[in-house]
Design a protein around this nucleic acid. Sequence first.
DNA 1: CGGTTCCTTGACACAGGTCAATGATTGTGG
DNA 2: CCACAATCATTGACCTGTGTCAAGGAACCG
Lengths: 236, 236
Amino acid sequence: MSEARHDCAMCGLHRICFPAHVASGSDRNANAVRIRRTRVAYGNALYRAGDRIESLYMVRSGCIKELDGADTDHDSIANFCLPGELLTLQSAGPACSRTTCLAVEASFICAVPWHIVEEACAAAPDVASELINLIVKSGVATRELLTMIRSKEALQRVAGFCLNMCARVQWRGHPAREFRLGMSREEIAQYLGLRSETISRCFSELARRGLISVRARRVQVLAPGELRTVFLGEGL
Amino acid sequence: MSEARHDCAMCGLHRICFPAHVASGSDRNANAVRIRRTRVAYGNALYRAGDRIESLYMVRSGCIKELDGADTDHDSIANFCLPGELLTLQSAGPACSRTTCLAVEASFICAVPWHIVEEACAAAPDVASELINLIVKSGVATRELLTMIRSKEALQRVAGFCLNMCARVQWRGHPAREFRLGMSREEIAQYLGLRSETISRCFSELARRGLISVRARRVQVLAPGELRTVFLGEGL
DNA sequence: CGGTTCCTTGACACAGGTCAATGATTGTGG
DNA sequence: CCACAATCATTGACCTGTGTCAAGGAACCG
């Protein structure tokens, strides 16, 4: 119960699930919105490109990768969704998804039916603008990735990836400088526009320099400052 | 007058400027929305990152490049806006722009004040969902660019760029297989994540193969089918 | 018509892709 | 709980595409 409340408090959907709560500071409407919870096993799809979008989804635990639809062959990973983050935002307008969402590892998901979201938006202008904010934010993240891939070389991208992961998990209250990768090197490579061998090499290089420590899928950031320097390309 | 009406009919803002027109099929409310028209000279900014966003903008003529804010040095071009296309969508939520918009060539712009857009959204749910649609669509375009840059090599990117430009200008009723580049090779390079020399080489190579013809900034597509084949990477 | 900017082309270097071999990790069934 | 298989990760050697540097040529502008 209180654990669930705790999770909800740091969820991106918070203001949509609990509009009254946010407005009044009380819990009285906390359960007004009907939330469905589902489990997605490793490798399975939450939904696929072309599916009708029923809900707005949030990752409770695990990791979901969002693939751009068209690319049938070498999948193009648009985003990794970590606990507390939202899916489906890019499909907000159209009835059918343009993306496929696969579980990188076994994951638990919250689903808020779209009609509920729409009702909430119609009822409260804050909620509507909050939704637009979330959509815009997800677009900004995509642009940041685009900029990184266009202008940074491999080592910088991997450094940036580590910093980004770090920031995202620690926002959720996890130990500040350590995280577990839910995804394989191959998937990181697809995300960063590189090859899995290059990811390995970059991890090794960063470890050799003493900036991180990698053991299987566990990553520790030892020197965030220097890592950032590498990312920015100043310490060439 | 009738020319202006004509232009408006193929503008992305059409459903927002003329909601009643769209709904009823008549022109009676055509001038209900107050539109400001401005001119931006070559190299000048429509607005800069950090500026307060006053309006939703549309390019009437010319070409505007949208730069991602953070990147101060080598500018990262997120998009080229051609006539009939919208700007500022990514800044819909926040009050301050995250992007800088510069005129690649002398351009004329329509500006619809944000409060008008907001009022129109509040008044008609179609308009609101239309706006969300437009925002989502612009996000999809960014993702397509991301996918292209991650997975295609230089010649494919340039082929894709030509096809994309072609589709966009011909949508506006221009001659089907020809267009004028408002931007320099350097700017195309920044957009596609390459160097200007590589853009030159790719144009030359595509011309050598007889797929396009390039003369200064004028491009003709001679063989769209084969160009598409190159883009898809099947005809290696 | 001359100066400036932009474009094209060549020679060369290097980051990262490709191919291949080995080692680590995880999961499964006895 | 162990052993085996399957997958995943690491590392090396080599090769290709694109960046870099430099020189000349075309287009534009006053």
